[in-house]
Design a protein around this nucleic acid. Structure first.
Lengths: 148, 148
DNA sequence: ACCTAACTGAGACTCGGTATCAACGCAAAC
DNA sequence: GTTTGCGTTGATACCGAGTCTCAGTTAGGT
């Protein structure tokens, strides 16, 4: 059973209908090797309406098929979701995105709860830096960072 | 010397001009007891042009007079900046925002660097939960969370 | 085959923010 | 005090991301 079929099944289980448009969006999304924007999907699914693509992206986010990655400039990207709760590191140079689950964010959150007297129920964490490949290429590329 | 004058001085030191419009924006911003949106500032500085308010907010962010707070629904708020680098916890119920510097984020970042083989240069962290006041008010308010 | 609620898609709309550009005015030089 | 020039302003057009509307379509249960 393909990834697409698996996702389709998840849709059905939640009582959503499986339409040709949704299938096309799912196919486009799952074919993406790395992170992507809604615009990327729009470009690959010309036949599907704008609103439908946005609606389906939201649906896929709710189903945890994809997750959102916040870039430093505020741009929202997506990425096919692997595990459960995790965070991302984004390479400032090549834009590569990596997941991480290894680090103990929960300990930080616990400390944080204590320090602020808040009951912390959720958090958002993104890391920004340079991936190993870009560091290996010693020539420091000067790519200007967009606004913000 | 008032906070406004101090900020104005910072502007001058950086070679920026001190205009009536900027002064009005700075006054509105510094009068804010807590976090606020650009829209709040716009509403309080009717005489000042939209573009100028946005430009001044950017300027104040660069000068570290204010810092940005990302809400869970993606809305960008501002808040008069206290210390240097810090993070926020946002109360999901009353929207209160608290700073925190106490927690050792740098340790996490160090682990993160090791785990992902990225050179982590920056990060974005926000916590979401319920503040002590809202927890004290035992009645669980059901406020629906906006999109996302 | 029928029915209907879920879904679609074109397009108008909203919202936050930026670009343009002629006019303005701060502040340094005279 | 006047000149001057460049940083700044603000009206307005524009942009991109996302939502709303609504008439028309369709998946999928009976």
């Amino acid at each position: 059973m393909s990834d697409v079929d698996l996702t389709v099944e998840r849709l059905e289980l939640r009582g959503h209908r499986v339409t040709a448009s949704r299938r096309r969006v799912i196919e486009a999304v799952l074919a993406r090797p790395s992170h992507f924007t809604v615009d990327d999907v729009l470009r690959e699914t010309r036949a599907v309406g704008r609103a439908t693509v946005f609606r389906t992206m939201k649906l896929l986010t709710d189903l945890n098929v994809v997750c959102r990655v916040l870039f430093e400039d505020g741009a929202l990207h997506y990425r096919v979701s692997t595990r459960g709760h995790h965070h991302h590191v984004v390479c400032r140079e090549c834009g590569r995105v990596e997941d991480f689950t290894t680090c103990d964010v929960s300990a930080l959150v616990r400390d944080l709860s204590r320090a602020t007297d808040y009951e912390i129920e959720g958090h958002w964490l993104e890391g920004y830096g340079r991936c190993s490949d870009c560091r290996a290429a010693t020539v420091p590329a000067s790519r200007e960072a967009p606004g913000g």
